[in-house]
Write a protein that binds this DNA or RNA. Structure first.
Length: 851
RNA sequence: GGGGGCGUGGCGGAAUUGGCAUACGCAGCGGACUUAAAAUCCGCCGUCGCAAGACAUGAGGGUUCGAGUCCCUCCGCCCCUACCA
């Protein structure tokens, strides 16, 4: 036996597989299609353990499905536009393109070294012109559909990255997702994708994504943030309640509390504020609060308990339900970008309004109260206002009964309650309100004031305004040699910037903003199905054949951003007629992180375990197997060097066991005999061990198959370890007494079951050691025969009054009556003469006797 | 504040539908082989107990012949999200 040398075996087989194009998709056969996809990497540096784990999961699924008879699409590419390339280029006095493509080549080499079964002929690189060309084409199609808008809006600006950001790219407490800087709010004219047109469908279809983790579905639902309620119009009035024509509309989820509205709030940045107070005595104080809100937000926000600041504007509105005069205040807790930026404040029903009322001495009349509230007796059936304040410590925002609410008194109040509906109906009848649905989701801001991205195909003409670049003029090519270190931008390149207007022929100039990188990653999975198409982003029949992605694998950090944008793209492209399905990813697996001592590995912390170091010591197969064995795929994995060594020992053991099963004498490097025969075994004992081995083979085939199907790779591997333990027991049978066909079958089965996990050692054993024809990765998955996994006899536990008291061995084929009899006999001395009240038989498991 | 998830040996974790809790691995302990070590192989390894046995899945209660799993109450931890009107 040759010693196991992963460093020799692994590169050799990788070369053979590449030369024979083993992993390239062969289209046109009649096998069912299966599309397995891992989120493609950003080429920021070396391949790390997180990549190894992510791609090992995908590779097991890919190889397994191929052995199960599927035609598998398993592609890889790079998400290669983005700001880090610009920053790196400045630091290294290089260009973003140079830095990006150098990193891609390094990562490509690493991924090949890891032996992943990618179809390298389908690589998609988003900064390649033959890809981003079609991103521009899709942009134009969305524009034609009315899904692209350029408009002025308050947006998030990162002063460090010097670009605007989408809402989804601003993390908690106002931090930029890339650099962590506090973002600023600016009013700017920008490009948007109208993702809000799909808000309802994006929410509804989450219910169809049964193959997604509940957590991700919840996060998306929360992000979309649907609220049902009403819009209510309040007319501005003067101090004597004379209404004007001007109305301010609010959104509320609690129209039933309208009788408790004692003040009216505007966001500090609300466009009306300035005009309401201009030239009045209230102007100075209002301006002070506006200023406070604009400057202190980010700092205040991080401080947990926030004091609510506000100021009276000196103006009033009329409450449309009861004609009461309500003062208009501004308050810094009212957000301009949710609802309408105006709020009807009901201090008894909303905690924030409650605190504000207490701080500024405003009345708090209760209007919806719980039935067990002490006030209930006093106020029940009170239609007029009897009580103008409460002794409560906090607002009551639950479901209750409406009081002090005219004809609505006594009705059930709460979110979406009959009381709410009744109030909406009355307001609708007088034209002062209507039922409506509000979403938290905002339109997707996709323009970036950066160089290294996909140019937005638009032209500015003094005569014609904003003009789309004609389809036949695509692609708008990004100059690859821009020296960003010297401050070069798209605007500073005359040959890029100056154009003639495609409509009128006058001198014009190009848009110099580029698209958000997330636009590139929103459709790359479609391009993989048809990566070389030069006439279209993809052909309809290719997409129809492969999509949707059967299994998508990636990190939870994309739960909202990438996954929501991709779902939007899919729906928008469907409506353009390019696709026929509603959702891009049928099943999603979010893998956990690889950590060291509970901390995320990072270069800056200096706690990185480099894959190549581990490969040099233990080999690719051991490393990959380790990442799959140590934890379930969706959980975080804390690095354990001892754990990797244990898995490496197991791989070595597989190598020795396979040789031994073929009848080879196994020796170590110094020639010491490692095969261990038990000469005391006779033919009958050998046959019994053979029977046991055969049974175990079938049990493990069944277990591994079921476990891979539900992504329990860790237990699939432990089942193979159990098989190897049983094989070890069989290997003690002296060669002369062994069942040779059985031993060979065991060896082949072991290798087939492990092939998706440890592809190199299995290929070596299969082709070289076993001398089989063809790659192990093109073999059929072992057939599971449940009948052969069953033993002739089975030991049952006998429970008496819920405790295991005895054991009885019966034939597997025994009838329930036979089992009953045998267990009563076995437990006779324990039961004595007590009458048996009940007897439950669980076939193959236990018997429960109650006395 | 809202939402999601979790609590099992010294550690990572297993237990698919309510059916013998702790599979598999790591660490540890003992033995074989060896001049010795490494490697390998065999065995032990929840707690208490000499043993028979008793007790153990965060705590307490319930349903059931039977609960890690289902229900209720409480405690603790993690993640996401948030002045969302």
């Amino acid at each position: 036996m040759l010693p196991y040398e992963p460093r020799e075996i692994e590169p050799r087989w990788q070369g053979v597989w590449e030369a024979s194009r083993l992993d390239e998709v062969r289209e046109g056969d009649d096998k069912p299609c299966y599309y397995v996809l891992e989120m493609f990497p950003y080429p920021s540096g070396d391949v790390h353990m997180g990549h190894v784990r992510n791609y090992s999961i995908g590779d097991v699924i890919s190889r397994y499905k191929r052995m199960r008879g599927f035609n598998v699409l398993h592609p890889i590419g790079w998400d290669s536009f983005g700001l880090p390339a610009e920053n790196a280029a400045i630091k290294q006095d290089s260009t973003p393109a140079e830095w990006t493509y150098r990193n891609i080549e390094r990562q490509r080499a690493s991924l090949k070294q890891l032996g992943f079964s990618y179809d390298w002929n389908r690589t998609v690189i988003t900064s390649d012109v033959n890809y981003y060309h079609w991103g521009q084409w899709i942009f134009l199609k969305l524009w034609e559909q009315g899904l692209v808008e350029r408009r002025s809006s308050p947006v998030n600006w990162c002063p460090s990255c010097k670009t605007v950001l989408a809402n989804e790219q601003v993390l908690g407490e106002g931090a930029c997702w890339r650099c962590g800087s506090t973002v600023e709010r600016r009013e700017l004219e920008q490009w948007f994708f109208k993702i809000t047109n799909y808000a309802q469908e994006l929410l509804d279809d989450l219910d169809t994504l049964e193959g997604w983790p509940e957590r991700v579905r919840q996060m998306q639902a929360n992000w979309i943030g649907r609220s049902t309620g009403a819009e209510i119009d309040f007319a501005l009035c003067d101090a004597d309640k004379n209404p004007s024509d001007e109305r301010i509309t609010v959104f509320t989820t609690r129209p039933d509390t309208l009788f408790g509205c004692t003040f009216f709030l505007l966001a500090p940045e609300h466009p009306l504020v300035k005009r309401l107070v201009e030239g009045t005595v209230f102007e100075a104080e209002v301006a002070r609060v506006v200023e406070l809100a604009a400057t202190a937000t980010a700092v205040e926000r991080s401080k947990g308990e926030r004091k609510k600041n506000g100021a009276f504007t000196g103006r009033f509105v009329v409450n449309p339900i009861n004609g009461e005069k309500v003062p208009i205040w501004i308050a810094d807790y009212v957000m301009m970008d949710y609802g309408t930026g105006a709020v009807m404040a009901v201090p008894s029903g909303d905690q924030r309004d409650f605190e504000f009322a207490r701080a500024y001495g405003l009345p708090i009349p209760p209007v919806v109260i719980a039935e067990d509230d002490p006030l209930f007796e006093t106020l029940y059936e009170a239609r007029e206002r009897k009580l103008d304040d409460v002794t409560w410590e906090a607002a009551f925002d639950g479901a209750g009964v409406m009081v002090q609410s005219a004809e609505f008194t006594g009705m059930k109040g709460g979110k979406d309650s009959p009381g709410s509906q009744a109030v909406i109906d009355k307001l609708a009848a007088q034209g002062a309100g209507r039922a409506t649905v509000n979403f938290r989701l905002r339109d997707w801001l996709i323009s970036r004031q950066r160089y290294w991205g996909n140019p937005i195909p638009a032209i500015y003409c003094d005569n014609c305004g904003i003009v789309p670049v004609p389809e036949e003029d695509l692609p708008v090519v990004l100059p690859m040699d821009a020296d960003v270190a010297k401050g070069e931008t798209l605007a500073s390149r005359p040959e890029f910037y100056h154009v003639t207007c495609p409509r009128c022929g006058a001198a014009a100039h190009r848009e110099t903003d580029t698209m958000d990188t997330f636009t590139c990653s929103s459709w790359y999975y479609l391009r993989y199905t048809d990566p070389h198409n030069t006439a279209l982003p993809f052909a309809r029949e290719k997409v129809d054949a492969w999509m949707p992605v059967d299994q998508y694998i990636g990190g939870i950090e994309h739960a909202i951003l990438h996954l929501l944008y991709s779902r939007f793209f899919t729906k928008a492209l469907r409506d353009i007629g390019l696709l026929a399905f509603d959702e891009p990813f049928s099943n999603l697996l979010t893998q956990g992180m690889v950590k060291l001592n509970g901390e995320v590995m990072s270069k800056s912390k200096g706690n990185v375990i480099a894959p190549e170091d581990m490969i040099a010591r233990f080999g690719v197969d051991a490393l990959r197997l380790y990442t799959l064995f140590m934890a379930p795929p969706d959980k975080d994995l804390d690095w354990s060097q001892e754990g990797l060594e244990g898995v490496s020992r197991f791989v070595n053991r597989v190598w020795r066991s396979a040789h031994d099963l073929l009848g080879e004498t196994v020796v170590d490097e110094e020639g010491t005999l490692l095969s261990l025969y038990d000469e005391s075994l006779d033919a009958a004992a050998a046959a019994a061990r053979g029977k046991e081995l055969n049974r175990e083979l079938h049990r493990v085939i069944g277990k591994v198959t079921a476990d891979i199907d539900r992504f329990n790779f860790n237990t699939a591997i432990s089942a193979v370890m159990e098989l190897v333990n049983t094989i070890s027991s069989y290997l003690r049978v002296p060669l002369a007494l062994r069942d040779e066909p059985l031993a060979h079958r065991a060896a082949r089965t072991l290798v087939l079951l492990l092939a998706p996990f440890t592809p190199h050692i299995c290929e070596e054993l299969w082709q070289v050691v076993f001398g089989e024809e063809g790659s192990v990765h093109l073999q059929s998955w072992p057939e599971f025969d449940p009948k052969q996994a069953i033993a002739d006899v089975v030991e049952l536990a006998v429970q008496i009054n819920g405790k295991v008291r005895a054991r009885v061995t019966v034939a597997t084929s025994a009838t329930e009556d036979e089992v009953r009899e045998a267990s009563l006999a076995a437990a006779a001395s324990l039961i004595g003469d007590k009458p048996v009240k009940k007897l439950v038989v669980v076939p193959g498991k236990l018997v429960s006797i109650v006395v």
